[in-house]
């Protein structure tokens, strides 16, 4: 396959992921509304919001970093996508995955946050600074158990290539990491709750409250880019967890079903539990998931 073809398929994959992300957001919000006995938004409301945000006529800037913040955030999400093998066994949908892609992807997960922190800091709004400091502190705590789980898997399968990890899990549910390495799965799925930004770990954005967090000053196209990124990011992070623990996907149908269920796990927990303060969430993440993660490594070291 020529490079041109590959790029074409990457763009097509990005298009599918973006649309699935937007629709998934709509479906999830619909489900949340039904839980609260409401009718809820239209399923295609995220599209309307996106169009509306891109159609804002006047926009302000606070400087260069203010422009670059959403761009960095978007490149974080797209970066994860670029090196993520989406469909196992397919020649077309493996994107640019290579032998060490797992390390690069876990780097990209933090990259977007840092870019956003710079941009939001230049916005100058105090709520942005509060949101950014909360977000970075909490995300560090989220990364630790996830990294331990990834290390555990790397030790287990003797590889840091996502394709090979997925390949090792083929052949039925008994070969999934979920079964062969339940401790790493538990640690990572607990940290996943934090990564998705739903309650109990949504103090960073604190939606519908005064401090909306980092994007306080972002509007119009900036916000549209952030929304685009969030749709992509939710799907690709779910795909990462799917590849690591739930046997990957061999076609788009499986991928959509599995990512929805994985994402729904964080929503499900969020519907049941109230919000942690940041001084509660970080100790919690550093206690239970971290302990499980260390256990997952020790078992394979022995």
């Amino acid at each position: 396959m020529s490079l041109f073809e590959r790029i074409l398929f990457v763009l097509a994959g990005l298009f599918i992921v973006l649309n699935w992300g937007l629709i998934m957001t709509g479906i999830i919000r619909k489900i949340i509304a039904r839980v609260g006995m409401r009718r809820g938004i239209k399923v295609y409301q995220p599209y309307i919001n996106l169009v509306k945000n891109f159609s804002i006529r006047s926009q302000l800037s606070h400087g260069v970093m203010f422009y670059l913040g959403p761009v960095f955030r978007l490149s974080g999400g797209v970066g994860i996508f670029l090196f993520m093998p989406m469909i196992y066994g397919s020649e077309y949908w493996t994107n640019f995955s290579f032998t060490g892609d797992l390390i690069l992807i876990s780097y990209f997960m933090f990259f977007g946050m840092l870019g956003m922190a710079l941009g939001a800091g230049e916005g100058g709004h105090p709520y942005s600074a509060i949101g950014v400091s909360r977000g970075l502190a909490q995300f560090t705590a989220i990364e630790l158990p996830l990294t331990l789980a990834i290390l555990s898997i790397a030790i287990q399968y003797h590889t840091i290539s996502l394709t090979e990890i997925v390949a090792a899990q083929q052949g039925g549910i008994r070969n999934w990491t979920l079964v062969t390495n339940p401790l790493a799965t538990a640690a990572a799925m607990l940290s996943f709750l934090g990564a998705m930004g739903h309650s109990p770990f949504n103090v960073v954005m604190a939606p519908q409250e005064n401090p909306i967090g980092p994007p306080t000053e972002y509007h119009g196209t900036f916000l549209g880019v952030l929304q685009t990124n969030r749709a992509i990011l939710h799907v690709v992070e779910a795909v990462l967890y799917m590849n690591l623990f739930f046997g990957g996907a061999t076609n788009w149908g499986t991928l959509i079903l599995k990512t929805f269920l994985i994402y729904f796990w964080s929503v499900f927990v969020g519907m049941v539990f109230p919000r942690f303060r940041v001084d509660q969430s970080i100790p919690w993440l550093l206690k239970i998931p971290l302990a499980i993660g260390i256990l997952a490594i020790i078992i394979f070291m022995i």
């Binding site: 509304a33 609260g36 006995m37 409401r38 009718r39 809820g40 938004i41 239209k42 409301q45 309307i48 509306k52 302000l60 709004h125 709520y127 519908q208 409250e209 005064n210 401090p211 909306i212 994007p215 306080t216 000053e217 972002y218 509007h219 916000l223």
Partner: peptide, 21 residues
């Protein structure tokens, strides 16, 4: 609230004037 549910009309509250119309 569930009784009136303005979300179904696409109405949403935003906490910052930058993002609201």
């Amino acid at each position: 609230s569930p009784r009136f549910d303005a979300y179904r009309f696409g109405v949403m509250m935003r906490p910052t004037p930058r993002q609201s119309g």
